[in-house]
């Protein structure tokens, strides 16, 4: 008896420590980024750091505005492409396809998530970039290319989470609607989707997180010019690309400015998540 109790207590203590180490890792990372990137932002002024139009690290001009706009454009583009496609797929699999087809297709879609991002970038470079250059104009490396690649990359996230939330809607709602003489599509549109709303929103938030954080594939297809693109056919640089491209050779204040880029990215993701969560919980209550 006493032995058992003692081992229980030991295990509990051990698990507690492991759990805390995971949380403290987050803490340490946050602290480190802010410690490294914070001071330089205040040295050159928060305003010029965020809204500065020019990024010439060798001349100590650190304006992140083009990259902030770039990240937001590319993420928005990915959502515009990925969300309708993903949601339509989820609706089809949950409500209209046969169970057998869904059982085959769902794992296939989840395989998409297993493809390394460098492969997405490579495929984009080989096929998408020449296609855009020849048919739509511009250098090919562009906001559009990055949006398309990211839109495809967020599909597995958007599909599987919204599929789960659509499937979690109790069948009694569907029966009630069909029994009133509604068609299947009316039932989906007017009852099932509203009931699955918070899950679908979660799917979009997670897709957004994936898109804004993705680096390698974006570097390969976006062109990476550190200026605000004049159209979606022009090159763009995102916050993540900015860090990855220059970290290898940066030193001193340049290095700190890259950490500051990380701080901005961190804050943007926090703000977007909070907004999305707030709308989710408010709509959930209604």
């Amino acid at each position: 008896m006493t032995d058992l109790r003692k081992s229980d207590r030991l295990i509990k203590l051990g698990l507690l420590m492991i759990a805390f180490s995971a949380i403290s890792a987050l803490f340490v990372i946050t602290l480190f980024i802010f410690e490294q990137g914070g001071p330089i932002m205040f040295k050159y002024g928060l305003k010029s750091f965020i809204f500065g139009q020019d990024w010439y690290p060798s001349e100590k001009i650190f304006g992140l505005w083009p990259m902030i706009v770039g990240s937001l454009m590319v993420t928005l583009g990915a959502l515009i492409i990925g969300v309708p496609l993903g949601l339509a797929t989820a609706i089809f699999l949950a409500e209209f396809s046969s169970r057998r087809l869904a059982r085959i297709l769902k794992p296939v879609i989840e395989l998409l998530a297993g493809i390394p991002s460098v492969v997405y970038g490579f495929l984009g470079l080989m096929f998408l970039i020449p296609f855009i250059r020849e048919n739509l104009g511009g250098p090919g490396l562009s906001v559009l290319a990055a949006s398309i690649i990211l839109g495809i990359m967020i599909l597995p996230t958007v599909i599987s989470i919204s599929l789960d939330s659509i499937r979690a809607v109790p069948d009694c709602y569907r029966e009630g609607s069909i029994a009133l003489g509604a068609t299947r599509w009316q039932t989906v549109r007017m009852v099932v989707l509203p009931a699955a709303r918070s899950g679908i929103l979660a799917a979009i938030i997670l897709g957004m997180g994936r898109a804004i954080g993705e680096t390698m594939a974006v570097i390969m297809v976006a062109g990476n010019a550190a200026e605000i693109p004049s159209s979606i056919l022009q090159p763009v640089r995102t916050l993540t690309s900015n860090i990855a491209l220059e970290m290898g050779y940066a030193a001193g204040e340049h290095r700190q400015a890259l950490f500051a880029t990380g701080v901005i990215l961190f804050v943007i993701i926090m703000v977007l998540n909070t907004i999305a969560n707030l709308t989710a919980s408010r709509q959930g209550k209604r």
Binding site: P170, C172, Y173, E175, G176, S177, A179, L180, G181, A182, T183, Q186, M190, V191, P194, A195
Partner: peptide
């Protein structure tokens, strides 16, 4: 529409009361 059905467990839609009642008319 002409042969309506009430189920064993009440299954109002997760919508407002008004939207529940007018649902059939709208579809």
């Amino acid at each position: 529409r002409r042969v309506g059905m009430v189920f064993q467990r009440p299954n109002p839609f997760p919508l407002s009361i008004a939207d529940n009642v007018t649902y059939g008319l709208r579809v």
